[in-house]
């Protein structure tokens, strides 16, 4: 039996509060001077990591929905996607402001010259139309094209992993772990499509 409407709303509120925790933690640590020796790097890394985590969580929804037959899970995918965009914007803002003080010439050179910056920037630009079309109105308006457009999330996810991978100096353990999670999530989609029996809807 699907959860009641009240339960679903409670889950949604809970997810919203959970999604804000990384930001609240940063504010708290900043206020109490606990951001460590390199606070700018700390904020850049933290917001970047949480954007990636939100993105991967948003990609967990569809396989879970298909495997367990929980269509109501879709209610939370949009919020996870928007949290990804929110933290990615904070990540970019901390880069523009705290790291480079809006020195545009320097920033443009950094983005164009350095592949890891460029792929990160591209991923953010690609997620902009997704955030803008995430509301009901645009969903109705775009109809089937909406789904096609939102499949951009896959190249975005790959670019984000590359961004992390190319940034790391030597120890690629962390980006490799995230890449593994993404690979599982993508393969799960392929598998579920090839085995429609597992898909209760079809």
């Amino acid at each position: 039996m699907p959860p009641s409407k009240t339960t679903l709303s409670c889950y949604k509120l809970l997810l919203f509060v959970l999604g804000l925790l990384p930001l609240l933690r940063l504010l708290w640590l900043g206020f109490s001077d606990e951001l460590g020796a390199n606070p700018v790097e700390f904020i850049e890394h933290s917001t970047g990591t949480w954007a990636l985590v939100s993105l991967l969580l948003s990609l967990v929804i569809t396989p879970l929905k298909l495997i367990f037959g929980w269509p109501w899970l879709l209610l939370y995918r949009r919020m996870l996607g928007l949290f990804m965009f929110f933290y990615a914007c904070l990540h970019f803002l901390s880069y523009l402001w705290l790291d480079h003080w809006f020195a545009w010439a320097e920033i443009i050179e950094d983005i164009s010259k350095h592949p890891y910056v460029l792929v990160g920037f591209t991923a953010l630009m690609l997620s902009l139309p997704l955030a803008l079309t995430s509301n009901q109105f645009m969903m109705r308006k775009l109809k089937r094209r909406w789904k096609t457009l939102h499949q951009l999330v896959y190249p975005i996810a790959i670019l984000v992993i590359l961004h992390y991978w190319w940034l790391v100096k030597q120890d690629i353990t962390q980006p490799a772990l995230y890449a593994l999670v993404l690979a599982i999530l993508l393969l799960a989609r392929v598998y579920l499509r090839l085995n429609p029996k597992l898909n209760p809807k079809s």
Binding site: A37, P39, E109
Partner: peptide
């Protein structure tokens, strides 16, 4: 090859400081 060496961030100078 992956980043510029033209400027640096001085550790301990706080959050709102330029390179």
């Amino acid at each position: 090859p992956r980043w510029s060496q033209a400027s640096e961030r001085r550790i301990g100078s706080g959050l709102f400081t330029r390179r």
